[in-house]
């Protein structure tokens, strides 16, 4: 720890002292990827390496963020740093958008180009029995080679719709919390934040239920051809992002309880809120493109 600022003044632009966190975090990720690469190939020790790496990484992130929060709370962050955070969060969210774009792109391509092509006249040469329908209806036409077991698709009703309502509501509760924050009503902020976090958890609960339902009752699996692939990868990555966003909000809530943030300065709060709204918007895309269309 080194935050020895001259006379408690906020520096023009705070440059942190040398720190071991970046190297430690990299070390953690080294074990993560080393382990993951081995684990997927059936080497048991990979899992341990993965866990070890995750532990190192998470611990490092924890101390790292704690340090950053401390710096923030001790007034080292000037408005210019605040602006840096705003820019960086925006660009980070942009990168996330592009990550989802890859999977949405895959869905688009599979449906609009691949599927009709596999079913067209030319391709009867290869796949005489295949009928190009989306979503795949089961039976022998479910996949070109007939290798995919029949399954039932996941409709928008009821869970995804309930989940849509939950996420939209959570967006509202979050906004209420934000207004309360700006108005300086801390207790109210905290209350609504907890509501938001709870809605996130409920969303995840529903999604878990949906997955179990898919595997057990619908025979809809990751291996259910391109439908299953896009369905689970899109909703799965989204669910993961909900989880991360929920953790962010949780941390913010706990910090609020500790008395962090002021009505004027609370970018940590806002950044988490932006992220949450981003997750929300992705969900709307999913809801229409994956469940309805």
């Amino acid at each position: 720890m080194s935050a020895a600022t001259p006379h408690g003044a906020t520096p023009y632009y705070f440059v942190p002292a040398p720190s071991s966190h970046p190297a430690m975090a990299s070390l953690g990720l080294f074990f993560v990827v080393l382990g993951a690469g081995q684990w997927v190939n059936g080497h048991g020790w990979g899992a341990w390496s993965l866990l070890l790496g995750l532990a190192i990484w998470l611990r490092t992130l924890f101390v790292w963020f704690r340090e950053a929060i401390h710096e923030s709370e001790t007034g080292l962050y000037s408005p210019r740093i605040d602006a840096s955070f705003r820019w960086s969060m925006s660009w980070f969210i942009f990168s996330e958008v592009m990550f989802f774009a890859a999977f949405f792109g895959a869905l688009y391509w599979a449906r609009v180009h691949t599927l009709p092509m596999l079913g067209n006249l030319d391709h009867q040469l290869l796949w005489p029995d295949f009928q190009a329908v989306w979503p795949s209806q089961g039976g022998s036409t479910v996949s070109p080679a007939g290798t995919v077991e029949p399954f039932t698709i996941m409709g928008p009703w009821p869970i995804p719709t309930i989940n849509t309502a939950i996420l939209l509501t959570s967006g509202m509760t979050l906004t209420i919390a934000h207004h309360a924050m700006v108005a300086g009503e801390r207790a109210k902020t905290i209350r609504w934040m907890w509501v938001t976090v709870a809605l996130g958890v409920i969303f995840l609960g529903f999604q878990a239920y949906e997955y179990i339902h898919a595997y057990r009752d619908l025979n809809l699996k990751l291996s259910s051809g391109i439908y299953g692939s896009t369905f689970f990868m899109l909703t799965g990555f989204h669910g993961f992002h909900v989880f991360v966003g929920m953790l962010m909000l949780l941390v913010i809530t706990l910090r609020l309880q500790k008395g962090h943030f002021t009505p004027e300065r609370h970018f940590g709060f806002e950044g988490a809120a932006w992220y949450w709204h981003f997750v929300d918007v992705v969900w709307l895309g999913l809801y229409f493109l994956v469940y309805w269309l």
């Binding site: 997927v40 599979a110 299953g228 692939s229």
Partner: peptide
């Protein structure tokens, strides 16, 4: 995203790039 799809195709049974399952 692209290499993640490769990874799941390799190990988790997805068929993004396998025509037999409707991929490309």
């Amino acid at each position: 995203g692209a290499i993640t799809m490769t990874l799941t195709d390799r190990h988790f049974g997805t068929s993004f790039f396998t025509p037999a399952g409707g991929g490309d």
